[in-house]
Write a protein that binds this DNA or RNA. Sequence first.
DNA 1: GCAGCATTTGCACACGCTTGCAAAAAGCGC
DNA 2: GCGCTTTTTGCAAGCGTGTGCAAATGCTGC
Lengths: 333, 333
Amino acid sequence: MSQRDFVSADEVARRAGVSRSAVSRAFTPGASVSDATRQKVLQAAEELGYQVNHLARGLMRNESGIVCLIVSDVATPYRSTLLRELTLQLQLAGKVAMLINTDRSDGSVNRALEQAIRYRADASVILSGLPDKSITELCLRSGQRLVLINRDEDQSGALHINLDDWEAASRVVTAFMRAGCSRLAFANSEAGTPSLMAREEGFIAAAREHGLDVIVERHGSTGYEAGRVVAQRLLTRKERPDAVFCATDLLACGLMDAARHQFSLSIPQQLCIVGFDDIEQASWSSYRLTTFAQPIGAIAREAVAWLSQGGVADGRSLTLQADLIWRDSVRGG
Amino acid sequence: MSQRDFVSADEVARRAGVSRSAVSRAFTPGASVSDATRQKVLQAAEELGYQVNHLARGLMRNESGIVCLIVSDVATPYRSTLLRELTLQLQLAGKVAMLINTDRSDGSVNRALEQAIRYRADASVILSGLPDKSITELCLRSGQRLVLINRDEDQSGALHINLDDWEAASRVVTAFMRAGCSRLAFANSEAGTPSLMAREEGFIAAAREHGLDVIVERHGSTGYEAGRVVAQRLLTRKERPDAVFCATDLLACGLMDAARHQFSLSIPQQLCIVGFDDIEQASWSSYRLTTFAQPIGAIAREAVAWLSQGGVADGRSLTLQADLIWRDSVRGG
DNA sequence: GCAGCATTTGCACACGCTTGCAAAAAGCGC
DNA sequence: GCGCTTTTTGCAAGCGTGTGCAAATGCTGC
């Protein structure tokens, strides 16, 4: 390792002709320093290129300023968008993001998380697919604040941010009925995430209120390929559905492509489709998918605001609304 | 902030009946401890739930174990895939990733980077779009190792990982000629990234060798929308191109959609298209885009291997090959 | 000038860890 | 058992910072 020599507060103090504590205080908002010395310190620091060592500061303050983002399927459009928004907000709040990838289901997940705990992260935001309760407990047990996005496991003391999936699902039923559809289907993955299941159950419930049954097909993980497989199953039935609500835009894209290119169905004339997430691809002119936009900006803002507030942060549950974006995959928008 | 009390090495030492140094050594690979005491320590640590405090360790060792990933456009398919691979490899190597988002072009980029330097990151990997030299210099000046992916600015002491964009570009010309195309065009963004420019220049050079001119159109940032705009410009020319090489798959998707839905062209019969990156969407059946796959796994592995090697790591330049993936957007694959 | 007060400042200790150094223990050949 | 070498252990001095406390300084009103 190359010898790295950083300037320390001592050197700054010497150059500014003050004590080392003065330097420390100059970099601590709200500390007791006169403006005169603060200026002297800041100038000396500037000249020397001094940067407060956050490892040492974290050690003293018992507060590292690190927030760790625990996420699987980072490369997925929805997740990566949320990730972008979160890192942006964190940076604005003066925090720093540590990224934990839980794609590998072997022990490396836990190893990575322990790694983060060793850095004494102040908080964790979980937007991971796998609902591994042991992970969340490990976080809380180590005194971190915890934000759970779209997973309503009842973890007391944490901030839960969820969408009103039921309400959204019922709006889809209304839309489908208005489009004159009657053979409803739901396309899901086998992930079994709380929010995915809520969309499914909400859809079924709302359909039943209108006296309609719903065909449910689930397959694999929540991606494009799964959409194709589900399409295969749904569109070869004797009673072919004329409306499919997909738990996810990726599923919807896969299903849509299969419906068009494999079954030569035209959308929305022969088949109406609604997705969820409003990923970028949903607006591409090959899809023009009617879907729900998650309030990603608001989610990120709420999360960061909660975890960077002072004092004791008590558990809270936040339910946000998803916005229905009308495009061309449902008749009669 | 909730009172967080972690168990310290002292407590472990007491419980195991050894000195604090013994605990420290038990957690340091290659340190001088007998197996007997190491076992005693590990057991006591297990029982107490002890985790080495990496802030303190980093302070002592002058080596934090933190690698910071500096990236813009995180939500983009190619970037997020690379990000996934990098975090995975880093975790495997026992390092931890700090994510710096440089999307905002205002001062927050530099502020975020300084933030990372304050945590004494050992290394930075730059996969950011903006070629801000001041950033890279700041990293090097603070003694970090530096990995630059797809940006060949000559930064001595860093590891440069690049693709052979020229070679790839020349293969595209060959493919287009074999498909019987003669009116070649190149679609680019205005980002001006070294790798994007290399694709453009390589394409032009290779075409000229075959006695062909290339129409070049650039617009905006490297995304879907830009592809549509460029399509607008290219496909309304009197001499409409019959083959377009797009600097990026996103551009290609936008261009393809516009060509089909707006200009009613059929691909590849009336227009051949080649992209770059092999993002997931390129394989979707609405596109089936012929494109180049970046060896993302290899890039990540090389990067992590280089930055986690012991001793002095001297600058190095690595050129990898992109794999041409034949799909259906060029005639005669 | 002085008492009385608020504001600044420096000292010194703490944070939790690593590591050089010397002392202690263990191993070995006889 | 004794000398010798090798391994293991504990001590203590750091790493760069924050902060309580007491001393010092600066004000104010008389």
